[in-house]
C-alpha cells in the first residue's frame, strides 16, 4: 500500500492508489456489475424490467438530441445522430439490394433498417454469458425513439430483427 505524502483539498493529486492504466480491469468489473444487476432485475420485475430500461434509454436519447436543429427529414436526423453517438454505439442506415431508398414500405408499415455495429450492451451481455434481445437491449430502443422524437416530433418503434456477435439488425418503424 503506498502512502500519499501530503494531501490538500485545493491541490490535484498526481498519483493515487492503483495505476492509471487500470482501465481494463475497471471495465470488466463494471460490465459484470451491470450484467448481474440486469439479471436480478429481470428475475424480480420480469415484464417491468423492460419498462424500466426503456425509460432510462429514452432519457438518454432526449438529452443527446436536445441541441439538434429540429427537422422533419428522418434520414438526415439519423445520419447526424450516428455521428454524435461516436464510438461506443455506432450505427448505420442499411439498404437491402433491390431497394432504391432507405425508407421502405411493406405490409402497411413504413420503416428504415438500421445496423448497430459497436455496442456496449452486446459486450456487457457476452461478458456474462447472457443472451441478447433481452431487457438491456431495450435501452437502445428507448434511446432511438427518444432521440427521433426530440428531433422530428414523431414517436416511432424499434424492433429487433436479428442479433449476432458482430452486428445487430433493427427496424425503426415510423407511424
Amino acid at each position: 500500500m503506498s502512502q500519499a505524502s501530503i494531501v490538500r483539498p485545493e491541490e490535484l493529486p498526481l498519483q493515487c492508489e492503483g495505476n492509471v492504466t487500470d482501465y481494463e480491469e475497471a471495465l470488466h468489473g463494471l460490465m459484470v456489475l451491470n450484467a448481474t444487476i440486469i439479471r436480478s432485475l429481470e428475475e424480480i420485475a420480469r415484464g417491468g424490467s423492460n419498462a424500466v430500461v426503456y425509460r432510462a434509454g429514452m432519457k438518454m436519447g432526449h438529452e443527446t438530441a436536445k441541441y439538434f436543429p429540429k427537422t422533419d427529414n428522418v434520414e438526415k436526423a439519423l445520419k447526424e445522430l450516428s455521428d454524435i453517438l461516436g464510438r461506443q454505439y455506432n450505427f448505420e442506415l442499411y439498404k437491402p439490394k433491390g431497394k432504391d431508398s432507405y425508407i421502405i414500405t411493406e405490409n402497411g408499415e413504413t420503416f428504415i433498417y438500421l445496423v448497430f455495429r459497436d455496442c456496449l450492451v452486446r459486450q456487457t451481455l457476452r461478458r456474462e454469458g447472457m443472451s441478447q434481445k433481452g431487457p438491456l437491449c431495450q435501452s437502445l430502443y428507448g434511446y432511438m425513439v427518444g432521440a427521433v422524437e426530440e428531433i422530428t416530433g414523431k414517436r416511432g418503434k424499434l424492433e429487433i430483427v436479428h442479433v449476432g456477435p458482430n452486428t445487430c439488425l433493427k427496424k425503426l418503424i415510423l407511424r
Binding site: 460490465m31 455496442c119 456487457t124 436479428h162 449476432g164 456477435p165 458482430n166 452486428t167
Partner: peptide
C-alpha cells in the same frame, strides 16, 4: 457482417475479409 455464420459453423469453414469489426473489450 453479423458473423452469426461464424458462430454456428461446426468446422470453422467461413472467412470474411475487409469488414468492420466491432469493439470486443469483453
Amino acid at each position: 457482417q453479423c458473423l452469426s455464420c461464424h458462430e454456428i459453423c461446426p468446422s470453422n469453414a467461413i472467412e470474411h475479409q475487409d469488414i468492420y469489426l466491432s469493439r470486443r473489450l469483453y
